[in-house]
Nucleic acid binder design. Sequence first.
DNA 1: AGCACGCCGACT
DNA 2: GTCGGCGTGCTC
Length: 749
Amino acid sequence: MSLDATVVCVWLMSGFDRPLHYRLPDSMVENAEPGSLVNVPLGRRQTIGLIVEKDCQPDLPLMQLKLVLNLVYPVPVMTPALLKLGAWLRQYYGASIQNVLETMIPGPVRQGMRAKEEKYVSAVKEADAETLAALEKRAPKQAELYQFLAQQFRPQKKSLVLSRLDASPAAYTGLLKKGLIKEEARKVERVAYDDELGDVEYASKQEIVLNDEQDACYRSIAESVRAGKFTTHLLYGVTGSGKTEVYIAAMEEALKAGKSVLFLVPEVALTPQTVGRLRSRFTEHKDAHAVVWHSSLSDGERLDAWMALATGTARVVVGARSAVFAPLPNLGLVIVDEEHEPAFKQDETPRYHGRDVAVYRSFLENVVCVLGSATPSLESYRNVKLGKYKEDRLTKRIDDRQLPMMHVVDMRIEMMRTRKPVTISNLLAEKLRDRWEKGEQSILFINRRGYNASMLCNECGHVEECKHCSIPMTFHRSDNTLKCHLCGHEAEPPWRCPECKSDSIRGKGSGTQRIEDVVKSILPRASVVRIDTDTMGKKHLFREILGDFRKGKIDLLVGTQMIAKGLDFPNVTLVGMVDADLSLHVPDFRANERTFQLLVQVSGRAGRGDLAGEVVVQTFTPHAEPIQFARRGEVDEFLEVEIQSREQFQYPPFRHLVRQVFRSRNGDKAMFFAEQFARKVEARMGNKIEMRGPTPCSIEKMKDHYRFHIWYFTQNVSGLMRVLKEVEAEVPLPKDVMQIFDVDPMSVS
DNA sequence: AGCACGCCGACT
DNA sequence: GTCGGCGTGCTC
């Protein structure tokens, strides 16, 4: 064996959580690169793996290394920066190699599916009458086929021709052998987006004219793009201030420099307007060609899109969070629209946050990252204040439309007046009637998040909170207890409100169905349509309803917050919101933030032309901060106050939450190991972490097993993960004790 | 994750 | 005697 054998380090797809070394056969030394997918032998089977390093030091003698079998694709499926990103994901989110590869490489690519080819046929124009006549006698089917093809101007799909003429493959091959027809294979370009976003109006390709503010933002971003250094910009622009134009201008800047662009949206289906505009702008861009990446692509479409990106055919990706791993070889700009949206967070391992990964990828690629929002997340806003991000602001709405007037209806007073439960307040009912009479449209949002989950006093708005964690406790109807989902603390549900001694403290909320009925009794002759999860499931129905609403066939749309996102209806002058405070009472550190974002988002939907819209918010807690700040349109002020309170209580999101769960049938045993584990971690991390559990209150009994939770709060996730791995090696867990990791910078519910 | 090896109980 | 349960350990 030669001494200069090339050794590669490979990440295996088969749940083997350690890199292994292989030798490259001479024939592959040229083509196999870091990022190449390869087949390798493992034991006596064969598995697929990813080369992460070339020319590396093996931890075994050379002769014990096996040879790489073959390359799955001639080109690498991951760029060097993506390989680094993968290593980071593994470390930061405590994910296994398999997890990481499954997340970063789409299934059809992993399985080595090739681009679909279709055969096309055309007639060769040299057949003379003589041969034709002979053909007609001896092989009528072939003659028929030939004549059909001779009439066509362009090559036809083989399968289509055969089925149309009801011809057998035998006749076809006969013709082929005679040389009368010729066949060519064409790669099929599957166009992914047409059905999905078909009803989106295509924005005209007119030149974008930026107003002064937009231009200033654009120039700030363009300057960073030209500087070619990692910089994060927060494009902080009120609803309707025209962030998309700034994005487009910035994208063109990057494209002009020959770079590619990654554009992330929270959910493709919920941002059809933005996606539609980008697509129509870049699909036929000279050589940029946009790819839309989302969950409902078929395998073939996914593979084609991936290949188009990997080979540089397409230089723009617009997609949901998983598009952050798009294999763009020459990245120049990353944009995250609506960066505050929770949809960027993945809720399975690896529990990554699309925005955070986007920022980190930008860092690795040394490019500009733009985060856009009308209501920035606390962490992004704070990063601006800390000087980590640059801020670009858009303060004016593009059409100079006034922000809508927001009325806050105190439902406690409403209930006292009528002496019975109220769904729609007098004010809201009045305004709904008024709009209907004027022929204007309204939207009614029903906030169902946290329905019946918390104890709320109907008199004073008091909500039961955990005495340890200061988050709302969750009401469990099954065993009639209140539980804290953070520390596991349990309590008896109170009979009377501890604040005002009223006995009307209970879980609260009204279903969409009931609200629809009430609304129909208020507006008996209006056309009222309800949108809920059932409707959302059926895409066509959903689109149809939205289409009808836009056309004015529907007077009032009733639905949950899913209709608040990204949709713009020009004729809506009233937006009502029922149970606005429900999302305040879900056991989540972001409850305030979410509620505020929702209110701001909803307000942005009201108003038409120069006519300011109106918003009616019904709530039991009119003085809650998110509601008050939203009413006055004070976004910065809200964020400042919220950040201050976070700093005071040392809550996430300024530190990360790492959750470790020990699961076992044997309660005592799992408890023992959990405690041992926790103590060792604490000893090593010192004051770099704060822990909760394991204590009696962090035990959760499931059907046949127990779960012990340890929560670590830290700013040093990587350090903690390393320590966790060390302790894991030191204290091997018995087989009947299972351990689950969870890194979660976002939600603590 | 697979897939072997291996050590025990229950069958023709 | 062997077939098959799944516990343990290894894979460059």
